[in-house]
Each structure stands twice: as C-alpha cells, then as structure tokens.
Deep mutational scan, measured.
Amino acid sequence: LHIEINVNGLRIELHNVSEELAERIREILEKVDDREEARRLAEELIK
C-alpha cells in the first residue's frame, strides 16, 4: 500500500503501511508546529 500524506506543507510518502498507521502518523505530525521537526519525527516513525 502506498499512501501520501500532507502535513503543514510537508509531503510524506509511506510505503507498505496500513491506512490506520498512516492516519496515526498524520495525526501525530499535525501536532508538531516546526516543519523540520515534523520531518525528523516522520523519519523516526517509519523506520
């Protein structure tokens, strides 16, 4: 499954994740104000 999410102008592509996991990642990242911090957090979440 390939999912693309957009959060605060940051486009993140997720591969091989469930829709539920992608939604949780999006919800978490929406709470982060700083774009660079959101990017770093996204990288950690999808490892």
Rank of each mutant, 00 (worst) to 15 (best):
N6D: 14
V7Y: 05
L45T: 05
L14M: 09
L45Q: 03
I5A: 01
D33G: 13
S18R: 04
V32H: 10
K31V: 09
K31L: 12
E27T: 10
E43V: 10
A22D: 00
A42H: 01
R26K: 13
L29H: 01
N6Y: 05
V7R: 02
N8R: 06
G9P: 01
I12Q: 01
I5D: 01
I25S: 00
E19N: 12
E13G: 03
N8Q: 05
I25A: 02
L10N: 11
E27K: 12
I46Q: 05
I12S: 00
H2M: 13
E13F: 14
E43G: 05
S18K: 05
N16I: 05
E13Y: 14
A42L: 15
R40S: 07
D33M: 15
N6C: 08
K31G: 14
A42V: 15
E30I: 12
G9T: 02
L41Q: 09
I12D: 00
R24P: 00
R35V: 15
D33L: 15
K47F: 12
I3L: 10
R35F: 12
I12T: 02
L41H: 03
R40W: 06
D34F: 04
E23G: 10
E4I: 15
E27A: 13
I46H: 02
E4G: 03
E23N: 14
R35H: 15
L1P: 10
E23A: 15
E19D: 08
D33Y: 15
R40V: 06
D34L: 04
V17H: 03
V7I: 14
R24Q: 12
I28P: 00
H15E: 06
R24C: 04
E43Q: 11
R39K: 12
I12M: 08
L41G: 01
I5V: 07
N6R: 05
E30V: 11
I25Y: 02
E4Y: 06
R39P: 01
E27H: 11
E44L: 10
R40E: 04
I25V: 13
L1I: 14
L14P: 00
E37C: 07
E13Q: 12
A38G: 04
S18W: 04
E4N: 11
A22N: 02
E19I: 15
L10C: 06
L21Q: 10
E44V: 08
L45K: 01
E19S: 13
E30D: 09
E20L: 08
V7K: 03
R39H: 06
R39N: 05
E37H: 08
I3E: 03
S18C: 02
D33I: 15
I5Y: 03
E30L: 14
R11M: 14
L21A: 06
N6P: 01
R24F: 07
I28C: 02
V32K: 02
V7F: 10
L10P: 01
K47L: 14
R24G: 04
E4R: 03
V17N: 02
E37F: 10
N8A: 10
E23C: 06
E13M: 13
E23M: 14
R26C: 01
V17G: 11
E4T: 15
R40T: 06
E36K: 07
I3H: 09
L45P: 00
S18G: 08
I46G: 02
I28R: 05
E19L: 15
R26A: 05
R24L: 08
L14K: 00
E44R: 05
E20I: 07
R35C: 05
R39V: 13
V7H: 08
E44T: 07
A38I: 09
L21T: 09
R11K: 14
N8G: 12
N6I: 14
R11I: 15
K31R: 14
E27Y: 12
I25R: 00
E44H: 08
L29I: 07
I25W: 05
S18E: 04
R11E: 06
H2V: 15
L45V: 09
L10W: 12
I28D: 01
H2F: 06
V32I: 14
R40D: 03
E44W: 13
R11S: 13
L10H: 15
E23R: 14
A42W: 09
S18M: 03
E20Q: 10
K31I: 08
A42F: 14
I46F: 06
E37G: 04
A22T: 04
G9V: 01
L45D: 00
L21K: 02
I46C: 07
L14H: 01
D34T: 05
A42M: 15
E44G: 05
S18L: 04
N8T: 03
A42G: 03
E23F: 15
A38C: 03
V32R: 03
L41K: 06
A22H: 04
R24S: 06
H2Y: 05
L1E: 08
I12P: 00
I3Q: 05
I46A: 14
H2C: 11
N8K: 05
L10V: 15
R26E: 02
A42N: 00
A38T: 04
N16F: 09
E37T: 11
K31F: 11
G9I: 01
A38Y: 08
A38H: 02
R11F: 13
H2L: 11
H15S: 08
E37V: 09
L21I: 13
V32L: 09
L14I: 07
E4K: 05
R39S: 07
E23W: 15
L21C: 03
I12A: 01
I28E: 04
D33C: 03
K47Q: 14
R11C: 02
A22L: 11
H15R: 05
I28L: 13
L21R: 03
L14R: 00
H15Y: 11
E43W: 14
N8F: 01
L10S: 06
H2S: 11
N8I: 03
R26Q: 06
S18T: 15
H15G: 05
V7Q: 06
I28H: 03
I46W: 08
K47H: 13
L1Y: 08
E36W: 07
R35Y: 15
I28N: 02
L41V: 07
I3T: 06
E27Q: 12
R39D: 02
I5W: 01
V17M: 09
L45A: 10
I12V: 10
S18N: 08
L45S: 02
H15P: 03
I12L: 12
N6M: 10
L21V: 14
I25P: 00
L21E: 07
E23D: 13
N16W: 07
H15L: 08
D34G: 05
I3P: 04
E20P: 04
N8L: 02
E13I: 14
E27N: 12
E43S: 06
H2E: 06
R26G: 02
E43A: 09
E43Y: 15
A38N: 02
V32F: 11
A42T: 09
I12F: 12
R35K: 14
L41A: 05
E43D: 12
E43R: 07
